[in-house]
Structures are given as C-alpha cells and as structure tokens.
Design a binder for these strands. Structure first.
Lengths: 240, 240
DNA sequence: AAGTGGTCTAGACCACGGC
DNA sequence: CCGTGGTCTAGACCACTTC
C-alpha cells in the first residue's frame, strides 16, 4: 500500500504533525507522556515501525524524550543558544520594543572588500543600509548591512526603521536564511562611529562582522556591527 | 533472533563501526560511495531495515550523505564550529606550539563573585591559576582560571606551563567537560593587565568570561580571559 | 532499465522501568 | 508482571537518479 496515495504526506510525518500540534496547542505540556509506539500504531492504523520512525524523528528534533521501559515524553522547552536572530527578534524575545534609525540607505559600487565577502566581483553594485539601534532613546549599536543589489535593490525603499530586515527578506524576497559566520573582536570608538553612538573617543566597542548565508549556501548579507560594550555582551554556548 | 547474542553489540552498530573504520583508515575518502543498503544487508547478513538504520545513524552524525536515487557517500570532513577547546588544543589544531607562563597559582578564599559563578558558598576555597599565553614570545592573552579547591587543590602543583589544563582535568582528575557558557565583551587595557600583555593603556581588549560545566551539569572552571584584539578574534557560527 | 534511497507492513524477541 | 522503547526480519512498492 502506498503511503501517500491518500493525501501526499508520509504517514510518519502525519503522526509527527499531529503530536507537534498537540504540543503547540498546549494539550501536551513539557514532561507529559506522549502516546506509546503501540498506541500510535493502533490510532493511526500503521505498523509499529512507522510509529517508531515518527517518534524517533521528533526525538532527534529535541521535541520529545524517549525513555526505555518508561515511555515517550514531551521534552522541556528548548533553550536557544547560538541562534541566528535579528535585532528585532532579539529584542522581542526579551520583551523590549526595537527601535532603529536609518542613517544610510543607498546603492554603492566601489567596495571591493565588501563585494569579496559577499562572493561578488569587486565592482558589483551593493545595497548599503546603515542603522543606529536604540533602546529607550539611548543608541547602543551601529549596524551596516550590505546585500547584492542585483537581487535586493528594492530594499532601499523598505520600511526598515520599523520592520525587520530578516522578516522582509524571508517573507518578501523569498530568501531563507540558514546560518552566519561571525568574527568578533574589540576596538575603540573613534570619529563618526563615536559620534553616532554618543560615546567619547576611546570607549571600548565590540565589533562583529558577520556573513549571513541562505539555505543555498550563498552569502546574502554582510554586516558590520559596533556595539557599546557597557550596554551589550555576547553570549555563546560552546559544546565539547 | 537476538541481535546481541553473538557478541553484545547491535548489528546496526557493528555496521556503523565497520564503515567508520574504513573512513578513518582512509579506505574510504570524502565523496566516495559507501555500500548501498542492499549491499550492506547482504554483506552483514541482516535485513534491509537494519542496514538502513545503520546508514541513517551515520547520516545524523554527519559522517555520510545520502542521496535518493544515487547512493550514500562519505561526507566532506566536518568543520568544527563553536567547539569548546583549550588554548593548547586551539593552537595544536593550527599547527602552532602553545606557550604559557604561570603568573599566579594559589588557593584563595575571598572571591565571593567567583564563588557564585562556580555555584559555591561565598567564602569557599578556590584554586586560582593565572597564565599569560604567548605565541612566538609575544604575549597575546591573559587567562585566569578558578576551580573549586575541594576537588582540585592538587592543580596548583601541576605542570600547567607545559600541559593543558583540560587534559589534566580529563585524564588525571576524571572530569569530563561538557560545555561552556561564554560572555564576551570589549574593554580597554589598564594597569597590570596592560603591563602583562605588553600593551599601552587604552588598547582594545576582548574579554571573555566563561563558565565551563562538566557532564554532570556542574560548574568546574570559571575563566576570565583578556585577548589582544589585534592578535585574536573570535569565530562563531550561528544557525537559524 | 537498473539501482538507489524512502516509506511501510505485520509480525518477533529483548532489555528495562515501575508497580 | 506488564508496558515501554530498542532491535530485527523478510519482504513490498514508490520516487528518484543515472545510464
């Protein structure tokens, strides 16, 4: 019997979706027992191996925990470490309202080093968006994003003071962001950067340069950020 | 038929071990095709599902890649991002010889903030080891480690100028390190730190404070490190 | 067309946990 | 003891890739 003659989704995925849904709608809470393999097999009219496959997949995702001899249980909510998040998302997850001021939004064509980071020819046209990030009227970061103008020229008119660049890319430009490689070092505030961040020259700044890749392993954004050290620190979890 | 009556290891793990071995001994290189499910089933005298299970496990570990309709192939060598590594290990992985000078190695008892980070009572006795890290005679980092003296008092006599603290802990003290939470920010060199790192006051420094946990989710080491910014930057990969 | 991985069945025995 | 997950069988059909 074909698994997807009925509606186009494998049986094990239908089972997973059903369980995920029960968790998302709080019918199942962290620590609760999920139906056993045998129950699921009976309920969904599949064989034991198929029910197993469904649970194994959910376990790999960290959604459930399986304990031999005991059962399958909803895993405690995951703590997200080292997740690629936009400023908007980070602030949102702390219950703060993000705030940005656009300093520059234009197309440039003479930044060979930036072009190289994006994997483009040296004189490529590039969208440059420079924003000062605020919380409660105090500036705390200066972020400059660069994107290939060929694909994203329309971004210079996007309402980025209010909406997230990530959200705009993922929803309006049909780009799925996958991961970012960051290079972090320390520097001191000088000149224009000091002025925009309202800092005295010589104040320590965290500098983060990141290349953000799409799911197609293609560089999409290059960001240089300067973060006021007394207002911002970076958290990382490293695994052995 | 019992899977482990023969020798105590499930069949799928034996298959995995066999494949891993062929990769480690370079009989199979990156990109090479691994025996197909059907071949493995025949060779090892198991059913198709069991061979499948073996390959699925190796795929989850990132050791092989499976391509429908095409076959199973040895995955490209993994790049380790965000791995908890000691200075010695980091230098070694770049083909450099590590070099340290011990500045302080003693037991202290009046560092309530450090004690708190280690999850200890405020006046606990704590091992303090301060080291300057060199490469080619140029100092580039000052690292201060703190460990509970109850368990690790013997470390003050360990030959840490030459051997790795991680290695000593894992081999001699029977402690398995699991992960670390790091807090990164920027600061400037001052006073004693500037002097030890041979920097002018006001030079930017990367400061990394990390709590390293054992596999028992117990804090084992608290480290404060100052890194010369022009000699060191931090790489992180963030996933979406 | 031949071969590969992906899904699935309808059973089986084992090892473990809790009662 | 009974229910749980862990391993396993000997097949099957499908979707896909390669030739």
């Amino acid at each position: 019997m074909a698994q997807n003659r009925h509606n186009g989704l494998p049986a094990y995925q239908k089972i997973q979706r059903a369980i995920r849904q029960r968790i998302e709608t709080n019918k199942l809470k962290s620590g609760d027992a999920v139906s056993s393999e045998r129950e699921l097999a009976r309920i969904h009219g599949v064989s034991l191996m198929t029910a197993r496959h469904a649970l194994a997949g959910l376990e790999r995702e960290g959604i459930v925990e399986r304990r031999r001899g005991s059962g399958t249980f909803v895993a405690p909510p995951r703590i997200h470490f080292n997740r690629l998040m936009s400023y908007t998302e980070q602030m949102g997850s702390r219950g703060l309202t993000p705030n940005s001021k656009i300093i520059v939004a234009k197309i440039i064509g003479d930044e060979p080093e930036v072009a190289a980071r994006l994997g483009l020819p040296a004189t490529s046209r590039i969208v440059k968006i420079e924003r000062v990030r605020h919380t409660a009227d105090e500036p705390f970061a200066l972020e400059t994003c660069f994107l290939p103008a060929d694909e994203f020229a329309n971004l210079i008119d996007a309402p980025l003071a209010r909406t997230s660049l990530f959200a705009t890319l993922e929803h309006d430009c049909n780009v799925q962001l996958a991961y970012a490689d960051e290079e972090v070092d320390a520097t001191v505030a000088e000149g224009r950067v000091a002025q925009l961040l309202n800092l005295r020259p010589g104040a320590p700044l965290l500098r983060i340069r990141q290349v953000i890749y799409s799911t197609k392993t293609k560089p999409v954004i290059y960001v240089i950020g300067f973060y006021r050290s007394e207002r911002h620190s970076l958290f990382i979890r490293r695994m052995r």
